[in-house]
Design a protein around this nucleic acid. Structure first.
Lengths: 248, 248
DNA sequence: CCGATGCTACGGCGGTCGCCGTAGCGTTCC
DNA sequence: GGAACGCTACGGCGACCGCCGTAGCATCGG
């Protein structure tokens, strides 16, 4: 019968504690955090956090890297991030009352990391530009780049075939929990994000998964990706601003 | 900060109870089951099940259809099934000790429903045949059919454009938790599955998400989908069977 | 109408587990 | 080498929640 049920419950139970969920959510930006940081994020004492982290380790949801007297925890792999995204879609979708609070929500919806790639309107903009330009083709488990797509990635200093060896898809769609539209995940998307950080086209925000597209980055992406758009959230419409300049 | 954490935990907590997880797992075949059936599946008394179902309702994970004195419960939508799949990938992946027990596992790995479409080697066979034949193109959030692909679906009596109105992708890859390879989900995949049941090309098993590809179905699919293969699990190798006929 | 059935509402019992206190081990810095 | 720091191990407290008992409401059948 439902041989999977118990295991499913084990995993879900691990994610079902508020403190642990907060930790996992924080780790979804792909970085490795120390136990202390995670304790602070989760809002519990270090001892409590230590226990939670041990459980998450045992459940193979996170990995640890010991460096001196620090222990850096990170998600065990993309599958974990994918599973969490699936839950976040539900969390954001249902109830409808429980949408994101305005301020933080706006930043996260605009641009953020999703494990190792970009999500939010930034991620969707990249996805849509590639899609509209015919640079994506269907492939084993997701997308592949067409010749023109490879040229674009090559021009950005990335080797589109470097990750082709792996069995996992180089590019695949990932449903965005804030926008309900797909963005690009996979090795190539991760490389692109890495490159953007490296060149300071995109900058991380402190203490948040939200990121910022710099002016230079916007220019570079618009040049490299014909049709790329990443709407600024339009804080106040021009018409309103005229009548009530204080709001701007 | 982690504004999503608490909601994430809520959802995961709902899925994190063994009884509820069993129920959700059972509902993943897309059918609607009565409270009593779900109680039996979960291994709890009807009163307990009723409580669990109320909680799942409140969390918008399931829907109910009242018919006379029966109440039929089903998953609230594809997003729920997707989220559960994500967890099952983890449940099956990690631990490595906790793989599927042999017998049931073999049947499920061979062919099963995944919410409303086919998974297992059957689902992968369909996916791979369409992919290899160049019948899939990249599209908003997943795959679309090429002209040749539309012809194939048309020949099967399905209208490839019928579901095009919806914003959700008609076809998208869905990671298979047993085989770790993608199969086809989405409206069109659901229509195809529906058609297969209708024509008795694929038959449901009782009390299981496992399904059976009939001989007629195998013939029809092989004819309609050039390159389609769906390996029988090869229960006992011919060589072994010769020496120990009892095993066959 | 009455009994059977399907399901839900309520209440008490018991186990699980999250919490932080103190304590202990290893690392780093002065 | 001593003190500060990061983290983990252990133990008791308390709350939550899953469990089923009984009870009650709707529906279907004769």
């Amino acid at each position: 019968m439902s041989t999977q049920g118990p295991y499913l419950a084990e995993i879900a139970h691990l994610m079902g504690d508020p403190a642990r969920a907060n930790m996992l959510h924080a780790l979804m930006d792909g970085r490795a955090l120390t136990a202390k940081e995670l304790a602070w994020i989760a809002g519990v004492a270090p001892q409590t956090a230590s226990g939670h982290l041990a459980k998450l380790m045992q459940g193979n949801l996170i990995d640890v890297a010991v460096q001196g007297r620090h222990r850096y925890y990170r998600l065990a792999g993309p599958e974990v991030a994918t599973a969490l995204e699936g839950l976040m879609v539900l969390a954001n979708l249902e109830g409808t009352s429980r949408r994101l609070p305005s301020r933080v929500g706006a930043e996260l919806s605009q641009a953020r990391t999703c494990y190792d790639h970009f999500a939010g309107r930034l991620g969707i903009g990249i996805h849509d530009a590639l899609m509209a330009g015919g640079h994506l083709a269907a492939s084993e488990g997701g997308y592949a780049l067409t010749a023109s797509g490879k040229a674009i990635f090559g021009a950005l200093g990335l080797d589109p075939d470097a990750t082709a060896r792996s069995r996992r898809a180089a590019l695949r769609p990932c449903l965005d929990w804030s926008e309900r539209r797909p963005h690009l995940a996979g090795h190539l998307a991760a490389s692109l994000a890495c490159r953007c950080f490296e060149m300071d086209w995109v900058r991380r925000r402190k203490d948040s998964r939200a990121v910022i597209l710099t002016e230079e980055g916007r220019g570079m992406l618009e040049a490299a990706l014909p049709g790329f758009r990443c709407d600024t959230p339009e804080p106040v419409s021009p018409a309103v601003r005229e009548r009530a300049p204080a709001l701007a």
